[in-house]
């Protein structure tokens, strides 16, 4: 089912669960504050770091940047680490592949790399806006939130999926599902 070199998703997922727990334990003991996996706040801090180069007083006076603190922190390094971890894993088993347009997108929108770039950029704007409003993304709410049995995590995760499924259906059309 999985391509060569890939791991069973149950196993990779379970190990990610172990990683999440160990991370909270180690950061609690060493840093004094447990760090739960998350990613979307990093884009706020990243945007703040960039914007600070252009308009420092605007960032200093923005309530949201003040609230989330514009700096390189644990979570930003986590996101940077995800990049390197994926690079390492894909280089190791030969699954690294340069791709400008994913095949499924090309089949639906056969207009080249710029069309995909525009879609990815626009989708990114919408996704992070929603994630920040919700207070987290599939990592922070979905994994860390639901792991802690939090109501906010469960509500957010269900809403992510419901809107995602409807939107994907609107874009790619209804198909015969494998179980029907």
């Amino acid at each position: 089912m999985s391509s060569k070199g890939g791991w069973n998703p149950y196993l990779a997922g379970a190990l990610t669960g172990v990683l999440a727990v160990v991370s909270v334990l180690v950061t609690t003991q060493v840093l004094g504050k447990g760090q739960y996996l998350g990613a979307s706040t990093t884009f706020v801090r990243g945007a703040g770091l960039v914007e600070r180069q252009l308009a420092p007083e605007r960032v200093a006076q923005n309530d949201y940047f003040v609230k989330e603190k514009v700096k390189v922190d644990w979570q930003m390094m986590l996101v940077v680490g995800i990049f390197f971890g994926a690079l390492l894993a894909s280089a190791g088993d030969g699954s690294f592949r340069k791709e400008y347009v994913p095949p499924m997108w090309r089949e639906r929108f056969p207009y080249g790399a710029w069309c995909r770039a525009a879609g990815a950029f626009g989708g990114g704007v919408i996704a992070i806006f929603g994630a920040r409003l919700a207070g987290g993304c599939p990592s922070g709410h979905g994994l860390s939130g639901v792991m802690q049995l939090s109501l906010s995590g469960l509500v957010a995760l269900v809403c992510f999926m419901v809107a995602g499924i409807f939107t994907a259906r609107a874009i790619y059309g209804g198909r015969n599902y494998p179980w029907t």
């Binding site: 989708g123 990114g124 704007v125 919408i126 996704a127 992070i128 806006f129 929603g130 994630a131 920040r132 409003l133 919700a134 207070g135 993304c137 599939p138 709410h141 509500v155 957010a156 995760l157 269900v158 809403c159 992510f160 999926m161 419901v162 809107a163 995602g164 499924i165 409807f166 939107t167 994907a168 874009i171």
Partner: peptide
């Protein structure tokens, strides 16, 4: 926010 995220995600 969750619903907006889902649209962008898809």
């Amino acid at each position: 926010g969750g619903l907006i995220f889902g649209v962008g995600w898809a």
